[in-house]
Design a protein around this nucleic acid. Structure first.
Length: 840
DNA sequence: ATAGGGTTAG
């Protein structure tokens, strides 16, 4: 009872028993007590008189064989004598549904005759069997129109027929109508049938409503009440509710293989593979067994979810249960295992198939070949199959072998096999090769060449690929667009533009017209080379043929031009594209705007930004970042903040980069407090500060004379799980030096050394300089001795050189260090660099 | 059988 309470709870009913009145009287209680499971109406026909037999015989004869006007009179006569029992008999004997229906409608119109519940049901069963939806609807109308009385069982059967054809509303309305008009007193069987019909439509609310009604009569729910509810919850993906129903059924020992399969198949459909398998494992305890069909559905479902592990386990169970295996189960499993490169398992299944005498089909064989470990396995799979296969199948297998070799980077082997099969000279002897027998499998076709040529291109064997392509003509193998495209793309990646154009022109003359891929390959080559004029003329050609230039290529061109300081040229290119009718992507505009920023043409950048906005573009976060960064670098931080507000207004979420730029902006304009405000704002907005954020601030704090805050921030970033990098340390070291704290700085230099981070040479110079200014020439001298080597001096930037020179000068005149510096100068490198003739 | 691009720190 506890579980029943749970379903009731689910339905939100506790004491509904009293709410609805029982629709039956004492007299028909007996009907309710028995709820037969058989859906068929039980026809206990009285024995048929001789006269009736004659009528039945004539009617069947006329309606199946000879329905023409000559029979009008006889029909009139027969019509006056028919009874429901006669009609039932006749309907049962007319096999053709159209003729049966015709007879049914004829009978309906006979004076004094009325169909009853049984004749309606025979007709309904017949019509639902042949899916005559419209006729069934008119049957429902007749039931209502003639106010036909139904037994509870009869109505249940009728409703189930309606449900099976998806006439859920009709079933539901008829049920209510019959009940309301007192034409039928539904019992639990009728309700069960109604639940079944509703479950076909999947209306969870409706089925719950009907279930509540049933509960309100105090009926004990049986298997046939639970099953449609379970099905309905399953179809509606109401996982928890389905489980409540299932568990309740289990407690009442109502679960059988069919119930189980409803739940299992749903679990697998929902991707709840583990749940499904758990249930499979529990089946032994439930003392029921799975049927074959459910297992197959489950295995397919598991594989679809990528759970070959569970699928294989289930397969194993099936074998133990003695089920006969299906090739399709092996097919899906081997396909998935091959894709996942689970070679051992795939081969194991293959062996299994051989043992159980299931012949693998071509798909399975080529899946296997695509994943085998080595050539031996390949041969093992192909062995004995050469003769039995047709040409097409052999071709497929042959190409699978090539594909496997190419994917295994055995490009040479694939090339040699292809040459051997095509009687081309590969420049090496293939006779001794393991794969020699495969050579006979098929004569290479276009796909074979596509595979090998693509492999050669990817292996950077472009010459070989090109010569193989040329050979195709000689052996009469058709080329393809794919071949041209791959070769042109490879040539373009090698910067061999002229050859690209040769093949391109050859294509234009051939039956293989260039595609957008062809155009873009060449376009990409021009962009990589920074050839804006060439790229533009290709854009024009693409325009003619209706192809789109790929964003990534013209963005690349933009970046290339900008890197060369030609942002204006880049900007013009995009304007030309617009002229051609293309709308360049925001990303390419961003690249140009950034290029303008980098050559200090900030106002040009702003103009371009505003220009594209005016033309309807919606710049994204990165585009805003570029503008904000540009303004910050130009110390126009307030304007940058305006852009920040603008992007937030547009619903764009500022990124870490946005905040970093603004923080840097305030730091560089000497307002480190405002910068710190952004740090807190970032945490509020769940934008985790990164190493750049902290480094920027550490630098800023030192420059504002707050070295202690800088050190505190370094500790904070580490506790926040952000590790400082060499740039952070270098910023801190030079920052502390600027603040006259070289002793503290030295600590972090040692920390860097401990972490195997190599500071820039200039850091040492900064430290040496700071120690001298801090009147600690000995420490400065020690550092100098430590680092001065040839390569150190070579790497030193021009800014540091005069400082170093000054430092040496200072140390050499200081009595505490002069002798050491002299020794150092005598060693060579410093003298040459600094040209200290005046020191003497 | 065809991509995934532009931004921040010393």
């Amino acid at each position: 009872m506890a579980s029943f309470y749970r379903l009731k709870k689910l339905l939100n009913i506790y004491q509904c028993t009293h709410i609805l009145q029982r629709p039956f009287t004492k007299s028909n209680l007996s009907t309710l007590s028995s709820t037969p499971i058989s859906p068929k109406p039980i026809n206990t026909l009285p024995s048929i008189s001789q006269e009736n037999s004659r009528i039945i015989y004539r009617l069947v004869y006329i309606f199946t064989k000879n329905l023409d006007s000559s029979k009008t009179q006889e029909l009139d006569e027969l019509g006056s004598k028919i009874t429901t029992s006669i009609v039932e008999n006749v309907l049962g004997k007319i096999k053709n549904w159209r003729k049966a229906h015709l007879f049914f409608n004829w009978a309906k119109n006979q004076e004094g005759y009325f169909h009853n519940c049984h004749t309606f049901n025979i007709m309904a069963e017949c019509l639902s069997g042949v899916r005559q939806i419209a006729s069934m609807r008119s049957l429902v109308n007749d039931v209502v129109k003639f106010q036909c009385c139904f037994t509870p069982h009869g109505l249940g059967f009728f409703i189930r027929c309606l449900g099976s054809q998806g006439l859920v509303n009709e079933a539901n309305e008829l049920f209510d109508h019959m009940k309301r008009m007192g034409l039928c007193v539904p019992n639990s069987f009728t309700y069960n049938c109604l639940l079944d019909a509703i479950s076909k439509g999947g209306d969870v609310g409706l089925i719950e409503l009907r279930l509540k009604e049933m509960c309100s009569y105090g009926w004990e729910l049986d298997k046939y009440a639970y099953m449609p509810v379970l099905q309905c919850y399953c179809n509606a993906r109401k996982f928890e509710n389905a489980l409540v129903v299932f568990n309740e059924m289990h407690e009442k020992e109502l679960v059988d293989a069919h119930v189980l399969s409803i739940l299992l198949v749903s679990f697998s459909k929902w991707g709840k593979v583990d749940k499904a398998f758990e249930l499979v494992e529990r089946i032994g305890d439930l003392n029921i067994s799975l049927n074959e069909k459910t297992c197959f559905v489950l295995i397919h479902g598991f594989v679809r979810e990528g759970r070959t592990d569970k699928a294989l386990q289930l397969l194993d169970k099936m074998k133990k249960m003695g089920f006969v295996m299906d090739i399709s189960v092996y097919g899906v499993l081997i396909e998935e295992l091959s894709r996942n490169k689970e070679i051992e398992k795939a081969m194991q299944l293959y062996e299994d198939m051989n043992v159980s005498g299931i012949r693998p089909d071509i798909k399975i064989l080529s899946d296997l070949i695509s994943c085998v470990r080595d050539e031996r396995d390949m041969i093992r799979i192909l062995e004995g199959r050469y003769e039995n296969l047709d040409r097409k199948a052999r071709m497929l297998l042959y190409n699978s072998v090539l594909k496997r070799l190419i994917n295994n980077v055995s490009t040479d082997k694939a090339y040699q096999l292809l040459c051997a099969s095509a009687c081309l000279d590969s420049g090496s002897d293939f006779n001794e090769d393991n794969l020699f027998p495969v050579k006979e499998l098929a004569c290479p076709n276009t796909v074979s060449f596509e595979l090998v040529i693509d492999g050669l291109c990817r292996a950077d064997r472009l010459e070989l690929a090109l010569s193989l392509f040329r050979e195709m003509d000689h052996i009469g193998c058709k080329r393809s667009v794919l071949l041209y495209n791959n070769l042109i793309d490879s040539l373009s990646r090698s910067g061999r533009l002229n050859e690209c154009y040769e093949l391109f022109n050859e294509m234009k003359q051939s039956e293989f017209q260039p595609t957008h891929y062809t155009y873009n390959s060449i376009f990409g080559c021009l962009c990589r080379q920074g050839d804006d004029a060439g790229a533009l003329s290709m854009v024009k050609e693409m325009r003619v043929h209706g192809h789109q230039p790929w964003i990534k290529y013209y963005t690349l061109l933009m970046q290339k031009l900008c890197k060369d300081g030609q942002a204006v040229k880049a900007s013009n290119f995009l304007a030309d594209m617009v002229q051609e009718g293309y709308l360049p992507d925001v990303v390419s505009y961003s690249a140009v705007i950034n290029g303008l920023v980098k050559i200090k043409q900030l106002d040009e950048a702003l103009n371009l930004f505003r220009g594209i906005c005016a033309r309807g573009y919606c710049p994204d976060v990165v585009a805003y970042n570029i503008i904000i960064n540009g303004l910050c670098k130009d110390k126009r931080v307030l304007e940058a903040q305006d852009f920040l507000d603008e992007m937030i207004d547009k619903g764009l979420a500022p990124s870490v980069v946005t905040y970093n730029s603004l923080i840097d902006g305030w730091c560089k304009t000497g307002d480190v407090d405002r910068a710190i405000v952004y740090l807190t704002r970032m945490t509020e907005k769940e934008r985790e500060p990164n190493v750049i954020t902290y480094t920027t601030l550490i630098d800023g704090l030192c420059n504002s004379g707050k070295p202690d805050d800088a050190i505190r921030l370094l500790v904070k970033m580490e506790t926040n799980g952000c590790s400082p990098n060499r740039i952070t340390f270098m910023a801190l070291i030079s920052g502390l030096c600027k603040c006259g704290k070289p002793d503290d700085a030295l600590i972090y230099l040692h920390e860097m050394e401990r972490k195997d981070m190599k500071p820039d040479p200039s850091i040492y110079i900064v430290l040496i300089d700071a120690f001298i200014k801090n009147t600690n020439p000995n420490e400065a001298c020690d550092l100098l001795q430590k680092v001065v080597r040839d390569e150190f001096l070579q790497d030193l930037n021009s800014k540091s050189r005069p400082i170093l020179k000054e430092a040496i000068l200072s140390l050499s005149v200081d009595p505490r260090t002069s002798s050491n510096v002299k020794i150092l100068l005598e060693e060579g490198p410093l003298t040459a660099l600094c040209n200290f003739s005046e020191i003497g």
